[in-house]
Amino acid sequence: MKKILIIETNIPKYDKYNRATGLWLGETAHFYDEIVSAGYEIDFASPMGGYVPLDPESFKYANEIDWKWYTDKDFRTLALANTKKISELNPQDYIAIYYTGGHGVLWDYPDNSELKKMAEEIYKLGGFIVSVCHGAVGLLNLTDENEKYLIKDKVITGFTNDEEKLNGTTDKVPFLTETELIQRGAKYEKESAFKEFVVKDGRIITGQNPQSPQKVGKILIEELNKLK
């Protein structure tokens, strides 16, 4: 059985501001909980490999699933302390790639050539591209076999401009996720701020915000079960 690749950020702070960021814990933990419960194996990777910082704000919203995995030593080692380098991985090993969020991804996902190539190859081989929240920025520069943006004319969601404003970070990020997705030609859809919302278009599954990773995982599993 092919594995599922979870991508996480290495960025610990906002570029020009002394404000911590990193992975939003629930966006890995809730998705991971669904995937491992369905019997799939996981690899964790990041643009630089190694340590993944956690956004301290994410602990304010942690529930029993977050604490279940954060207190698991093996999970902390594989998902947070010692993630794999993308360059070490073979896209043929994976049936899906999942981009987690947290504001750090705005700096290390979009222009990473190795990450771009990995996702494009997984998709070309019939796999799924999946994201949640700011993780959607990992899809921005992906292209198809005709060198057209992969998300052009695809139904996509991700962290909204309203959510960025409510979060107080509009002036601290290098760009707005919703705006950039639309500029790439995506058919962007959204729900109310911080309400669970997930859309699927073919083999692309995207969730809007930190409230959505569990549903993203459920929908991916449903799609994978259809292939069995």
Rank of each mutant, 00 (worst) to 15 (best):
K3Q: 12
I4A: 04
I6R: 04
T9A: 11
I11N: 01
P12H: 12
K13D: 05
K16D: 10
K16L: 10
T21L: 08
G22N: 04
L23Y: 10
W24M: 05
W24F: 15
L25D: 03
G26F: 04
E27M: 07
A29K: 02
Y32M: 06
E41V: 05
F44S: 06
F44N: 08
M48C: 06
G50V: 09
P53K: 08
L54H: 03
L54G: 00
P56A: 14
P56F: 14
E57G: 05
S58M: 10
K60W: 15
W67L: 15
W67T: 11
Y70V: 03
Y70E: 07
D72I: 06
R76F: 03
L78V: 12
A81M: 14
A81C: 11
T83P: 00
T83L: 08
K84R: 13
K84S: 11
P91L: 08
D93L: 02
Y98G: 02
Y99I: 08
G102H: 00
W107H: 01
D108Q: 05
L115N: 03
K116C: 01
K117V: 01
K117M: 02
E121F: 01
Y123M: 09
K124P: 04
G126E: 10
I129E: 02
S131D: 04
V132E: 02
V137G: 02
L139R: 00
L139H: 02
L140H: 11
N141W: 04
N141F: 08
L142A: 06
L142V: 12
T143S: 09
E145H: 06
K154M: 08
V155S: 05
V155D: 07
I156W: 10
T157W: 09
N161R: 14
E163C: 10
E164P: 13
T169S: 12
T169E: 14
K172R: 08
V173H: 06
F175N: 00
T179S: 13
L181K: 11
L181E: 11
I182W: 08
K187W: 13
F194M: 12
K200L: 12
D201M: 08
G202I: 15
R203H: 12
G207K: 02
N209E: 05
P210A: 11
K215T: 06
G217W: 06
K218P: 01
L224K: 09
N225I: 05
N225T: 05
L227Y: 04
L227D: 07
